[in-house]
Design a protein around this nucleic acid. Structure first.
Lengths: 301, 301
DNA sequence: TATTTGCCTGCCAATTTCTCCAGAAAATCT
DNA sequence: AGATTTTCTGGAGAAATTGGCAGGCAAATA
């Protein structure tokens, strides 16, 4: 079966590039391969719009109050920039967690959507992260895309085509509900997306929820409800996550002092910053700064 | 008249067991006798499905915004787990408030309902607590049930029969509208009942009304409306009552510290907890903890 | 006497609940 | 079928709840 072929192929490739655990590029723009030899702790991430096909092992992510789990041949589609918590739950050196991811291009989605949507689209429940079994044509397209990685002469021509094809299949797949919504002007999803862009754009600035609702063109309460429905969190929590994740980066990798990091991401009181930091990461910022940065991979609890 | 007989009999019995004011068992499972020698303050209770026949004195209960009053030979039927406020308003040492109560078994109700409902049931207005004059066969059945209390040899055979009979009469009585509705799958009452089960099951967890509505299979606004119609209160108030009543128990009887009690019943901020507690009980939690627990019975205001 | 601890109160912004209403859908009647 | 009534849904907006924080008080502790 082609699928097993793809899996074997990719896993071999991953073994060769034993570069480590962080996602690493495969030679195609926007395409990355993720591999983990061990279950990990829960770690916070910021997703971008992405399509990720799990080939081996299992992973779960938490969006606010929601928990989704992905196993072999399942996949997830993220349609929005989203902070989340992820955890690889099944992985071993013999059988590591392996997944192939492609960044999505929302412009491309919009473009395709106009061509696709004849029938009036139903209002489906659209979540920021959709998951489920991967439809066969998608797996196949991913395989063909992956095969392009060292056909340098073919890439410039074929890669855009396959990318477009993947976007198409996603758009019409079951998991594509959010993408379809996003393409629809004035849908809730599209409005929330606009608001999220604002939050991301200035996450270190003081944020007034009223203004966001305004940007989205919704009532404050309606905005809250939709926001939660789609992202699984409230606007403020969303922003807080972004802030803290960035702060952590500043602290662990840029070695900023705690207070500096706090101010940098928009906190006015280092006290408050410290409290929230500890609550989210389980470690105080001071500690994170002191300790040597280490690999994500850890024996699972 | 047989009724007077029953009353005299029970009152005598109650005098014998001068155990005090709390409801006390009469030797039949699920059957209790309530006696109060004095009017009481308003006190919060959590009803279970129950049928309660008032024999002497008067009592009133408040469900949210509704006030119902029960006097001699009136009775009330509670079909749902319901927090409420009760108050004995007419009682004296010479003529105490006396009532006989039987817990109801909703499974039994369902069972009987299928046997009973030939005619398509009308949609009647169904309230969580129904009250009114007690129909004669019911009083009679209650009398016969009460007489079983010391016929230990007859109990195993006759008690289930009488219980069933009582359920039957309730189901067809005027006060049985809620019971009839509950038995009907997909009725509003049945849906709300499901939601209430959820609330009760985890009243100390963060609860989202959207989800409750989901459980009930109704729109949020429809859910609100139905919930209020049946219970006389809103979902949040309902949950809050449960929380605070439990918290009060923890504070007065288990002697938990205020903050602990707050966390225990699901508040994340003792501040807020304290505020609400005072509002509902008229006394700050601190005070309730400090003061010696005392009897419910107090001279009425 | 000074400090600490536990709690209450007021204030603020965020979040959620809840009412109300218009339009859609379903049921009922003609 | 078509008309009418009833019921339901979804959304806006007002109102309430919530949690955080600062200030204060009073009892317990040092």
């Amino acid at each position: 079966m082609q699928i097993d072929e793809l899996i074997r192929e990719i896993i071999n490739f991953a073994d060769l590039c034993a570069a480590g655990s962080d996602p690493f590029p495969v030679g195609l723009p926007g395409v990355t391969l993720v591999r983990q030899r061990r279950p990990t702790y829960v770690y916070p991430v910021v997703y971008q719009p992405i399509f990720c096909l799990v080939l081996q092992g299992e992973k779960q992510t938490m969006l606010g109050d929601r928990l989704v789990r992905f196993a072999r041949l399942q996949s997830f589609v993220v349609g929005l920039d989203m902070p989340a918590k992820a955890q690889v739950v099944k992985a071993s050196p013999r059988e590591p967690y392996v997944a192939l991811a492609v960044e999505l291009d929302l412009n491309l989605i919009n473009e395709l959507a106009t061509a696709v949507s004849q029938g009036a689209l139903e209002d489906e429940r659209a979540l920021a992260v959709q998951s489920g079994e991967t439809e066969a044509p998608l797996v196949d397209a991913m395989r063909r895309m992956f095969d392009l990685r060292d056909r340098h002469e073919a890439q410039p021509v074929l890669f855009p085509l396959i990318l477009k094809e993947i976007h198409y299949w996603l758009l019409v797949s079951e998991q594509g509900s959010l993408l379809r919504q996003l393409a629809k002007k004035d849908s809730h999803a599209a409005r929330i997306s606009k608001a999220i862009a604002v939050i991301k754009g200035c996450y270190s600035a003081a944020l007034r929820v009223d203004d966001l609702a305004d940007v989205a063109g919704m009532s404050v309460s309606g905005f809250h409800a939709s926001f939660r429905e789609i992202t699984g969190t409230s606007p403020l929590q969303f922003q807080k996550q972004l802030r803290l994740i960035e702060a952590r980066r500043l602290i662990k990798w840029e070695r900023l002092r705690v207070a500096e990091a706090a101010y940098h991401v928009g906190y006015e009181s280092p006290t408050q910053f410290s409290r929230e930091y500890s609550r989210v990461f389980g470690v105080s910022p001071r500690k994170d700064r002191t300790e040597v940065p280490h690999d994500l991979a850890e024996p699972a609890a």
